[in-house]
Design a protein around this nucleic acid. Structure first.
Lengths: 156, 156
DNA sequence: CAAAATACCATGATATACCATAAAGCATAA
DNA sequence: TTATGCTTTATGGTATATCATGGTATTTTG
């Protein structure tokens, strides 16, 4: 790969009874260009699904492999959680992936999924949880920047 | 080789009276692509079976050979244990391997085996032991999280 | 030859790939 | 701007292929 790519935007799609969702078309374009695959796993810290390109995990695996720390407990834990949870998700000719029950349950997703771009990775939220999360994020930002210009504040 | 491959996901399969288990189909695909073989041995630190491609053990052996580390006696011992225990496991035309009594006993596996991907290697657990282990790991990770360096990558 | 290990066959369940229609974006021309 | 046709995308439905697993045949080995 080594191409530039960014997962961006926020897109809401339907999830049917079988767990099928359309991957946003921009994301599909990234997959095609990169010649890699989408990999998803439960976020370690939030009630959402996280996704990235398999290349990213490849990189992680290589780092661990080369760290000469064949028997480290910490690495063992990490690899168990990340690789033990992650799975490839190929999309069919209509652009859909099917999310597993495990992932959907973790993210509390029923019939609607919100894809949120995060650059090198992306997240999938339930509409309710994402709404709350976005609010939290905005509040954190505001606190950290008390001196935002009035113009900026009235934007949006 | 240097092909890309990752053992991922957590998959539960049945073990019959003869010790036969289906190797997850993704794992089989890796074996075919790599033109290497699956090797399994008793984990040195946990009640589980550990597996990887034979290439990996090759690499480990080379590393030991080339590191004239005066203080690596411990690592040397560990690798001796692994090589003394490891064995090739070929799968038949239906995708099954036959786990030995020794391995099954060590992992306390009766009629169900849980395959847990770890990137370049994987583990096989009994459902009960894996459940406990996963919980332990999550607790440890949560505690250490702020100081984990490789984990930066998986941050939000 | 007996016992065990290994390879092959058959089946149902499940996941995957494909088809068809609807909806939405996009460009061009009026 | 507004209307019109075209292309791309989303989504419900269905056919197909794959996989896990119980069973049996065949080979190996002691």
């Amino acid at each position: 790969m080594r191409k530039n790519f960014l997962f961006m935007d926020t897109i809401t799609n339907k999830v049917d009874a079988k767990g099928r969702v359309s991957l946003p078309s921009d994301y599909r374009a990234i997959v095609k260009e990169s010649e890699s695959q989408i990999v998803c796993y439960r976020s370690l810290t939030s009630p959402c699904i996280e996704g990235c390109l398999e290349d990213m995990l490849e990189k992680l695996a290589t780092e661990i492999e080369n760290s000469n720390d064949f028997f480290s407990q910490e690495q063992d834990d990490l690899t168990n959680l990340i690789f033990g949870d992650a799975r490839r998700f190929l999309f069919d000719s209509t652009g859909r992936i099917v999310l597993s029950e495990k992932l959907l349950a973790h993210a509390q997703i029923k019939d609607t999924a919100v894809f949120v771009g995060k650059g090198r990775k992306f997240q999938i939220w339930s509409p309710e949880n994402w709404e709350k999360e976005e609010l939290k994020i905005r509040q954190r930002i505001m606190q950290q920047r008390p001196v935002l210009s009035p113009a900026k504040r009235s934007e949006n």
